[in-house]
Simulated scan of single mutants.
Amino acid sequence: MLTEDGKHLYVSYDEYHGAIEKLALKIYQSGWEFDTILCLARGGLRPGDILSRIFGKPLAIMSTSSYRAEAGTVQGHLDIARFITTPKGEIAGRVLLVDDLADSGNTLNAVISLLKNSYPPITELRSAVLWVKAISAFSPNYSVEFLSTNPWIHQPFENYDQMSPKKLLEKWTV
């Protein structure tokens, strides 16, 4: 649900999973066939996992990180993992790159540049995200929602960002 000021988008688990399903339908209806899903961790892990299950395709993972300051609310230096984890040796063929959102677009632009320059076995690369902000310098091949007010997206699992084992113990100790 978007707040009145347009600065925050609060997403429930049902809305989040619904967005992933809508993304799957857009990819399916495009008729494009792909060999592997490459998700960007952490944001693309959940959508990538669900898409992997729906399409019956292997899931590869590339770790990236740029939101670390102030509990993950301030974008900083972009780190991209040197290796891709994949169950089928080296990533190759037609690859669907999945993340949760195109915010500034910096991460997706950098990853696509790296993949095109460093992974020649990839013959075709397309991208899919749930949300695209108006400020994004990146336009994915597939997306579910365009956010014209560039809100901060509050995803349903973010409560775990403030959770610690000690807090969990307090919650579950009777």
Rank of each mutant, 00 (worst) to 15 (best):
L168C: 05
Q29G: 01
L130Q: 07
D103E: 10
L40F: 09
T3G: 00
S164T: 15
S66Y: 04
L115G: 10
E33Y: 11
Q155G: 00
S113D: 15
E4F: 09
N159I: 04
F157P: 00
Y10C: 04
W152H: 11
L97A: 06
L115E: 11
T123C: 03
D35T: 12
D161W: 13
I20S: 08
D5P: 02
L97D: 06
D103G: 07
S143R: 02
F34S: 09
S118I: 00
S52V: 12
L169I: 00
E90M: 12
K167V: 01
G72A: 11
K26W: 02
D161L: 14
P47A: 09
L114W: 14
L2R: 11
W131C: 00
Y10D: 05
V98F: 07
L97G: 08
I153H: 08
W131N: 07
S148F: 03
S52F: 10
A110H: 13
G31R: 01
E90H: 12
V74S: 02
Q75F: 03
D161Y: 15
Y67R: 14
R42P: 01
V174N: 13
A137T: 14
S164Y: 08
R82H: 13
Y119R: 01
K116M: 11
H8Y: 01
K22D: 14
V11D: 05
I80N: 09
V129D: 06
K22C: 05
V111R: 03
G18K: 11
N117K: 15
W152A: 08
S12I: 02
S66P: 04
H17N: 13
Y67P: 05
N159Q: 03
I122M: 06
M1T: 11
T149A: 08
L38G: 10
D100Y: 06
S63L: 06
A41C: 07
E70S: 08
R46T: 15
N109A: 04
Y142N: 02
S113P: 00
I84Y: 09
G44K: 06
H77I: 12
A71N: 15
L9K: 13
T85K: 14
Y28F: 14
D5L: 01
F157Q: 03
S164I: 07
H77Q: 12
L101S: 15
K26C: 11
G6I: 05
Y119K: 03
L125V: 09
F55R: 02
A41W: 04
E15G: 06
Y10I: 07
T64M: 07
T149D: 10
L9W: 05
N150A: 06
S148L: 01
R42E: 03
R68K: 14
A60K: 01
S139A: 04
H77P: 07
C39H: 06
W172R: 13
L96H: 03
I61M: 12
T173I: 03
E124V: 00
D35I: 13
V98Q: 04
A60T: 08
L9F: 08
L114H: 13
I37P: 02
Y67Q: 05
L114T: 08
A60Y: 03
K7L: 08
S127K: 00
L114F: 14
R42H: 10
T85H: 13
S30F: 13
E124R: 01
F138T: 10
H77W: 02
D103M: 03
G72F: 10
L96S: 04
S113T: 15
P165M: 09
A71P: 00
M1L: 06
P156I: 12
I37G: 12
L23K: 09
K167Y: 02
